[in-house]
Nucleic acid binder design. Structure first.
Length: 459
RNA sequence: GGCGCGGUGGCAGAGUGGCUAUGCAGCGGAUUGCAAAUCCGUGUACACCGGUUCGACUCCGGUCCGUGCCUCCA
């Protein structure tokens, strides 16, 4: 079985051929930690987590690196605004990011490097770029000289003339070319900084990913991922830095062979923005919805497509998940076959550019069969699919809210239930329905079954 | 303006040159004292206009509409 991936570098869906079939290596740009992670950050994390989960089933070894950028002017701005120390901010939001992503079933990357732990690697890389005449020092800054790199712009597909024309920002006087971008910049005494051959300073935005991916994966590696908006300039600049530092000016794939970009998330039809005030934080969502619901919502559309985040979409994912849990719960007396594998149609869908909606359709069909045929093999397959998707990991009865004797409220509920049973036996259905309504008001749903009445929490 | 992406049934969302997913919601039925849950049944939808073809929602051209990026935003 082979994986196909939509490769931004070639603009086509390519068969994935690992550099080393025994060891697949991928990198995805992680967050800059100065605030809570929003649902767009989460999409990236979930998408690449899901890709890694699938790749792990196809290849013996996968190394997934996703960084934390903990040095950035936005962090400095946040520190100035809140009065908190920079390292307090980055530590705090790194921890929150990791726990929020864990709530979404995102497995920790194999390596989560922090930019500040790789300043030396960045300096080394910058020195190589200067040696090769791709970068120059000017007024304490070091800049990448874009005209020195013929292939610049080929990932995002824009010519250098267009870059220069897009003079939306003041061109600093020390730049040789308007398109040149910063590799290193000077820090004042009150700004975070590190000693370097060019004086005390800090790295520019793009160099950290070039340095960290190279150190932890080696060059070239297989897959580089991130949000679609990072194509330009971030990924374009990463390619420029990494290819030019090592003398691969004519080969864009000398850095990463495949480039995979996830689509943007809108919220109720609008782009997330501070001005609209609709930045949707994972941290808030997980107070209201189980992480599995949010994860399923994110995986319900193809990763490369735009996704509109809405209450309705979440509710739809919840309904689906409830039904799947209902099926698992109904199979509680069937011993799942632990050796059961993922069915071929599910793997086929996932290996076709990570087509999660199609895979979900196959899982639905599987669930239906499992419920009807009640075999250990089918239950095992269903649970295996759940595990692969990071869903159906909870206890089904608990998920559905079925009450156990001994629950906090169970005594009162049991008493009402007993009274209702008596009323039913007496054909006093008016009283029986009254009790149903009472329980309903308490958020309790009664389900009569051949084994007697059961109750569960609504929701 | 440049470079992209997209317009599919009430909604979400895959996909394919002919056999027309899947989910959510709705409707009808079974079941139930009534419900809930479940099961069965039910929807020929692919922006518009041309073209290619025996045949297009799927390929080509054009039109309209929406949307993302264009220097620090995942």
């Amino acid at each position: 079985m082979t994986m196909k991936l939509q490769n931004t570098l070639t603009r086509s869906k390519d068969e994935f051929k690992p550099i080393d079939p025994d060891h697949v290596r991928l990198y995805a740009c992680g967050p800059t930690v100065y605030n809570y992670a929003h649902i767009g950050n989460a999409r990236m994390a979930v998408v690449f987590d899901q890709l890694v989960r699938v790749l792990r089933r196809m290849y013996p070894k996968v190394t997934y690196v996703s960084n934390i950028t903990d040095v950035d002017d936005k962090i400095m701005a946040a520190a100035a605004e809140t009065g908190e120390a920079i390292d307090a901010i980055t530590t705090k939001y790194t921890d929150i990011y990791n726990s929020d992503m864990a709530a979404l079933g995102v497995l920790p990357p194999d390596v989560q490097p922090r930019a500040t732990a790789h300043i030396g690697d960045m300096i080394t890389l910058i020195e190589k770029l200067i040696e090769r005449d791709h970068a120059y020092e000017a007024e304490g800054h070091v800049l990448f000289n874009v005209p020195s790199y013929e292939a610049y712009g080929n990932l995002s597909g824009r010519s250098r003339d267009e870059q220069v024309a897009g003079a939306r920002v003041d061109v600093a006087p020390y730049k040789k070319d308007a398109a040149d971008f910063v590799l290193w910049k000077p820090s004042s005494d009150d700004q975070p900084g590190w000693d370097s051959p060019w004086g005390r300073g800090r790295p520019g935005w793009h160099i950290e990913c070039s340095a960290m991916s190279e150190v932890h994966l080696g060059l070239p590696f297989d897959i580089h991922g991130g949000g679609a908006d990072l194509k330009f300039p971030h990924h374009e600049n990463e390619i420029a830095q990494s290819c030019c530092a090592h003398g691969h000016e004519n080969d864009l794939s000398a850095f990463s062979k495949y480039w995979v970009h996830n689509g943007f998330v809108t919220v109720e039809g609008d782009k997330m923005s501070k001005s609209i005030g609709n930045i949707t934080l994972v941290h808030d969502l997980i107070d209201y919805y189980d992480g599995e619901i949010l994860r399923l919502t994110l995986l319900s559309a193809h990763y490369s497509q735009p996704l509109d985040w809405s209450e309705k979409a979440i509710e739809q994912a919840k309904s689906l998940l409830d039904r799947l849990y209902g099926i698992v719960n109904g199979l509680s007396d069937v011993q799942a076959d632990d050796a059961a594998d993922i069915p071929a149609d599910v793997m086929d869908a996932l290996s076709d550019d990570l087509n999660t909606p199609k895979a979900l359709a196959a899982i639905n069909a599987l669930a239906k069969r499992a419920a009807a045929e009640r075999t250990p093999a089918l239950k095992g397959q269903l649970l295996a699919c759940g595990a692969l998707f990071g869903i159906l990991q909870k206890d089904a009865a608990e998920w559905l809210g079925y009450g156990q004797s001994g629950d906090a409220d169970s005594n009162a509920i049991d008493a009402l239930l007993a009274e209702r049973q008596q009323a039913r036996a007496d054909k006093n259905f008016a009283r029986a329905d009254e009790i149903r309504d009472e329980l309903d008001a308490m958020g309790i749903v009664i389900e009569d079954s051949p084994e007697g009445p059961k109750w569960r929490k609504a929701g």
